[in-house]
């Protein structure tokens, strides 16, 4: 069975859930080989199906943006001629994938939400135009390189050998152009990851800048908290929690929009959620066109009452 190379994202040495999802998807196509940058290979790679782990342990990968990792992955692609290459659809993952595909003269699909295999052909599903269309696409040249969005599969445990093979690459000077001069880890919020959460509760302009009701309601449901662009632009919530075209795309089981009008920019980030609920003072807000259930009312009174009711029901 041919190999499938999987680029692993592991900030601070911890493998992200979307990376484990990639291993599960890779197993549909062939035999997953993890490509891991760092010193200590996490055991989760073998536990989730990596037959091999190519380990690239060199400070150069942390010192420069994208270039060195792209060169290393491209070298592996040239050596192994894999059946496919999967990368996480993060900013970095997408850029690495693009450069690898160009070097390998291979087609590249980004932001896949599903990957299906039929014989030798690999077909992807993407959600485009703010989630208004679903597109099926395939790579027609070279080795399919695919950037896959979070939550595109459920990571499945699959005991594999996880044989570690150290790989060293002579990174060219050209790849060392963009130097990372400082890197400050983000503080953990203690809530689920926005793109991985089953429930997302978000706030917008209607919060007036105070997210306490939104956060309390989210915590009663064990949900992640998100924010609209209006709230982020006003400086009310950090940008990495922004949902929408220029922020995160989420597709949870339940999405609760509070004080968010539902402009196309926001829809782009949440329209594919399974169940959508909104609380908004304005009954004309376009968000109500999307909802399964809506409350026309002030989130400042509706959410505290809902939070109290949930706590009561939980006993």
């Amino acid at each position: 069975m041919s190999e499938v190379l999987v680029l692993i994202d592991a900030p601070e040495g911890k493998v992200t859930k979307p990376s484990l999802e990639l291993l599960t998807i890779a197993a549909r196509i062939g035999e997953p080989s993890a490509v891991f940058f760092g010193s200590d290979v996490p055991s989760s790679l073998a536990e989730y199906g990596a037959a091999k782990v190519y380990q690239l342990d060199d400070a150069v990968y942390e010192e420069y943006l994208v270039g060195p990792k792209a060169e290393a992955l491209a070298q592996l692609v040239a050596e192994k001629s894999p059946a496919a290459v999967l990368v996480p659809a993060t900013s970095e993952g997408k850029e690495i994938g693009a450069r690898v595909a160009l070097k390998a003269e291979s087609g590249y699909i980004t932001d896949a939400v599903d990957v299906a295999v039929d014989g030798d052909s690999v077909t992807t599903t993407q959600s485009v135009f703010a989630g208004n269309f679903t597109v099926q696409a395939a790579v027609t040249k070279g080795i399919p390189v695919i950037a896959v969005k979070p939550n595109s599969a459920t990571p499945e445990k699959a005991d594999a050998a996880g044989t570690v093979e150290a790989v060293s690459v002579d990174v060219s000077d050209a790849a060392k152009g963009a130097k990372i001069t400082s890197s400050k880890p983000k503080e953990a919020s203690g809530r689920p990851e926005l793109t991985e959460a089953a429930i997302v509760v978000s706030g917008g302009r209607g919060t007036g800048g105070d997210f306490s009701e939104v956060e309390a309601f989210a915590d009663s449901l064990g949900a992640a908290v998100g924010a609209s662009r209006a709230a982020v632009d006003s400086g009310w919530y950090p940008h990495n929690f922004q949902i929408g075209q220029t922020g995160k795309t989420v597709s949870p089981q339940l999405y609760v929009a509070n004080g968010i009008s539902g402009a196309i920019q926001h829809r782009a980030g949440m329209q594919t959620s399974k169940t959508i609920v909104a609380v908004n003072k304005d009954e004309e807000a376009p968000i109500f066109e999307l909802v399964d259930f809506g409350v026309v009312g002030d989130l400042k009174t509706v959410l505290p009452q809902a939070t109290e009711e949930i706590v009561k029901r939980k006993g």
């Binding site: 109500f288 259930f293 002030d298 509706v302 949930i310």
Partner: peptide, 18 residues
């Protein structure tokens, strides 16, 4: 979907739906 107007019980109705 179903849209209700908050008449003092909007939060409870929301939880009933959930």
């Amino acid at each position: 979907g179903e849209i209700v107007t908050d008449e003092g019980d909007g939060g409870v109705k929301l939880v009933e739906f959930l």
